[in-house]
Design a protein around this nucleic acid. Structure first.
Lengths: 199, 199
DNA sequence: CTTCATGGAAACAGATCGGTGTAATTAATG
DNA sequence: CATTAATTACACCGATCTGTTTCCATGAAG
């Protein structure tokens, strides 16, 4: 069991990767610390050396999922709608199990748990990201529209969890387009044969 | 402890009521059968007499939450939008803990669990209810629009779970109105002073 | 009164959980 | 080599979980 390992990954990283895999796939409450330690090929003692409690590990798991939205130079409208395309890919690859933040809040229940705050942070970050793009697009009431886009994303996630259908992302995307149109965000200039971008 | 009880409620009903209260408030996995039995003022022996396993109790809890949408004679558009007003009331009363069906799917994880099927049934029922109303309104593509409204409802539920804000229901409602407008569902005739219906 | 079904109280079984204590082993560093 | 820190293996704790079992109280029907 001591095969010459990827020396690359430190124990803490392996533990976090194992927690991410198991917590997301099977649920936080369904996975014990022993299982995480085993998956990380690490003794339970070392796990508790890096993360003093399961709650700490949960918090680390959620914060590690924080992928900061990379600033892109793509057109703002495309960036917004591209979000839904990413959702569709997530739904389709079979391993989708819902939004990890919402799942954590649901599974843990306690609103005072650190996970609740982390989840709120993440959602708000994405909402503000939407809002910044909408402001750049001179949309009407960017704040309200950002909230609505966020609701669409959340709804697509939840719907795809109970239903399996990846097409739900396209439905949400279409709804987002209607909202953008209604907010005065004009479609990209498709006129001058620049339709070259194809798909 | 044998005070002259409401003879009205049969043991099975009391157990189900207790399960509903505890499962929804604290989560399915967080509540043991002992707690349900205690809340129902019933011995664990009787609980297992009526529901042979916790899974059976969970399934009964979810199916009991099936409130069949009562047919209403209110204008169809009002019926649809009224859904979001009900959401706002749910969010505001403090005891909101997310959609019980989504929660069950999340907590149990297993897609083969009976809860997954029940959740799917419920969501589809509401979607079809939307669709029927939209057909009556001669909306463009009622099926697709029904899915989008369903996504909005789901998104409002999930968002209100992590954020606490009841106003999210109003945001979702406003988005629904935009979608309805875009689908050619005209607003109710507010012209002829029939605005009497007030609020 | 006898019979039988229902249900209460409580102990129990077997498993799993989060978390700790400890002694032995390994790996890096001087 | 010697020292030290990290890590392992593994037993163990108390709590909790689902589910079962045993014994006893009740109460209605024959």
């Amino acid at each position: 069991m001591k095969r010459a390992f990827h020396k690359t990954a430190t124990p803490a990283e392996r533990i976090l990767a194992a927690a991410d895999k198991l917590f997301y796939r099977q649920g936080i409450r369904a996975v014990g610390v022993d299982a995480v330690a085993a998956e990380a090929a690490v003794s339970k003692r070392t796990l508790y050396n890096y993360y003093p409690s399961k709650d700490d590990l949960i918090a680390a798991y959620l914060t590690a999922r924080f992928r900061h939205l990379a600033p892109s130079d793509a057109p703002a409208r495309e960036q917004i709608l591209g979000n839904f395309d990413r959702l569709e890919r997530m739904f389709a690859d079979g391993s989708f199990r819902g939004c990890p933040y919402v799942n954590a809040v649901t599974e843990l229940g306690d609103p005072k748990h650190a996970a609740a705050g982390i989840a709120l942070q993440f959602k708000e970050q994405r909402r503000l990201w939407f809002r910044a793009l909408l402001e750049r697009l001179h949309a009407r009431d960017p704040d309200a529209l950002a909230t609505q886009l966020q609701i669409l994303v959340e709804g697509a996630l939840a719907s795809a969890l109970v239903r399996g259908d990846p097409a739900l992302a396209r439905s949400a995307r279409a709804a987002a387009e209607v909202l953008l149109d209604a907010a005065g965000v004009r479609r990209p200039a498709r006129s001058v044969r620049q339709t070259r971008r194809a798909r």
